[in-house]
Computed example of a mutant assay.
Amino acid sequence: MAYTKDDPRSALEAPRGGAGPKADGAIAAPEFLDFTVLPPDVVSAGGSEQWIVRGQNFVLIYTEPTAGDLIWKSSLQSEQVLLLIDENSAISGASDGETHDVTGPALVVVPPGESAITSTGSGPIVSLVQSDEAEWAAKASNAASYATPHPHVAPLEPWPEPVGGYKWRTYQMSDVPADPKRFGRIFRTRAFMVNFMEAKSGPRDLTAMSPHFHDDFEQASLVVAGTYIHHIQTPWGTDGTKWRPEDHAQVGSPSVTIIPPPTVHTSQAIGWRTNHLIDIFAGPRHDFSARPGWVLNADEYPSPAE
């Protein structure tokens, strides 16, 4: 773990050392899913384009919508998380017999059951669902990568139910004041943790990188603006036939990079204009949750220890 002194993550407890749920299993390769070069998996009759990818515990649907188009209608056994990326992202959602209108940037939690989402704007919308929603997991363009579960990734164990029960919840990014002592803008549900980080201008300082690793969970890095290089190093084991070279993969926006444990990784913004990255985890992280004030909706979604 290597963080600069002014990085809030420097106060985190160090990982155990890469001893995931099955440390003798093969370490998965990272996946770089750049939607600027991959064709959409779905194009609706109204012209909306969708890319569907997955990790071990989640499915991510990235939508570039046509205003007025129905982009989602389905029934789920678990909560769904929606990310309205910018001020042009807007939805009208029907759930539990009620209609909810939201303009981004925002994070929305949709309760289990039947729901329908219409895009009322032209900005991107991201949907996160659990991978045990088998219908959606099967639609992922990289579904074959998870035909066999990755041994270093812990199974999803949902956290306690939300205070007040399941309901539509909206978190506007404009309501979150800046705080240099907090790392990003972190929200969690029973199954997800999302760091809806703020956009930044210009390239990252190459002398202030943050290489680190996770013991037993994947990280999905969603780039929604700018250009990044994801630097990823796979640890060497005793079997040299399974060694792989370092990755220094450049991706555009939008793109999703799946970073497997226990690879050492850090992301470098290189675009000279706006760069914006959102980190996604399934399930919630215990280390981030243990930091006072970091999880902005902790009063609604308790941790297992509470």
Rank of each mutant, 00 (worst) to 15 (best):
M1H: 07
A2C: 01
T4S: 00
A11I: 09
L12D: 04
L12H: 11
A14W: 00
A14L: 11
A14T: 08
A19C: 10
P21F: 07
A26N: 07
P40M: 00
S48M: 06
Q50E: 13
Q56A: 12
P65D: 01
P65E: 01
T66K: 14
A67S: 14
D69K: 00
Q80R: 15
Q80P: 00
Q80M: 14
L84H: 09
A90E: 04
A94H: 11
V109R: 12
G113T: 03
G123K: 03
P124Q: 02
I125A: 08
D132N: 15
E135T: 07
K139Q: 15
K139T: 09
P151G: 06
L156H: 03
V163C: 04
V163K: 07
G165T: 10
K167V: 03
W168L: 13
W168A: 08
Y171H: 08
P177F: 13
A178T: 06
I186V: 14
R188V: 03
T189F: 03
R190L: 01
P203W: 04
S210L: 02
H212V: 07
E218H: 12
S221D: 05
V224W: 00
A225K: 13
H231M: 06
T234F: 04
W236N: 02
G237I: 03
Q250E: 14
G252L: 11
P260Y: 14
A269E: 06
N275K: 12
N275I: 11
L277P: 06
D279P: 01
F281Y: 14
F281H: 08
A282L: 03
P284W: 11
S289G: 09
N297E: 10
Y301M: 03
Y301H: 13
